[in-house]
Amino acid sequence: MKLVWSPETASKAYIDTVKSCKIFRESGVAELVSAMAAGWNAKFIVEAWSQGGPIATSVGLAVASRHTGGRHACVVPDERSRTEYLRALGDAGIATAATEVFVGEPEEVMESLAGADFVVVDCKRKDFARVLRLAVAELSQKGAVVVCKNASSKNAAGFRWRSVVVDGGSRRLVRSVFLPVGNGLDMAHVGAIGGGGGGGSSGPAKGEGRWIKHVDQRSGEEHVIRK
């Protein structure tokens, strides 16, 4: 997955998410995650949600999928969570028919969600590391972006990306970054299958290209693109 940034698509998703999330009183996590998913043209967005959890980020992901023309799927543990999730999306003005909801434990449904290229997991879940590991195992063969929200919670203490980004050595952690937004966003770009080993600080392999970091002087946002 080459992270080619589209400022225009990201901006549209950001603005639409702001409008859709005006009924919530939360930080800018939903808007930022929506802009990232849209700006990187995610075609299959997957999230995990359970009853009582905040819905704003889910709204943002639904908005992003609309702008990229991709799929948006959510994993919930039971029918009660499914009902609450769809009702909350509807209350925010989101067309619920466009979101696929899978009911069951992660082990039961993640295989059905193979090929995701943008995944969001809440670190407040006690089982977030298990959910994350299962999700990473089913990522798109072309690579993906994985986001952990509420990454400053006690459940995430000691978490390391290299503990979950493993696939018989065929996956590699291209880059990870922590952003102090909301209660913390910990994000990683997972490389394509067969894309090489552990990443590290070595230079790009032959034919692999190089990564360039660009900081938007107006917004302060950091974008990473491959040349």
Rank of each mutant, 00 (worst) to 15 (best):
S50T: 15
S50Y: 14
Q51D: 14
Q51T: 07
Q51G: 10
Q51V: 10
G52A: 11
G52W: 08
G52L: 12
G52K: 07
G53T: 08
G53Q: 15
G53S: 15
G53K: 15
G53N: 14
G53A: 15
P54N: 14
P54A: 11
P54W: 10
P54V: 01
P54G: 06
I55C: 01
I55H: 02
A56K: 06
A56L: 03
A56H: 07
A56Q: 09
A56N: 08
T57Y: 07
T57D: 09
T57R: 05
S58N: 14
V59R: 10
V59K: 11
V59T: 08
V59W: 06
V59I: 15
G60I: 03
G60Q: 04
G60A: 04
G60E: 05
G60W: 02
G60H: 02
G60C: 07
L61R: 13
L61N: 14
A62N: 07
V63C: 13
V63E: 09
V63G: 08
V63N: 09
V63F: 06
V63P: 06
A64L: 06
A64S: 13
A64W: 03
A64G: 04
A64T: 01
S65I: 00
S65R: 10
R66Y: 05
R66F: 01
R66K: 13
R66S: 04
R66T: 07
R66D: 08
H67E: 12
H67V: 03
T68G: 09
G69E: 08
G70R: 04
G70L: 03
G70H: 02
R71F: 11
H72K: 03
H72Q: 12
H72E: 02
A73P: 13
A73C: 15
C74E: 00
C74A: 14
V75F: 01
V75Q: 03
V76N: 00
P77W: 02
P77M: 07
P77T: 05
P77K: 05
P77Q: 07
P77I: 10
P77S: 08
D78S: 12
D78N: 15
E79C: 02
E79F: 09
R80E: 11
R80H: 02
R80A: 14
S81Y: 04
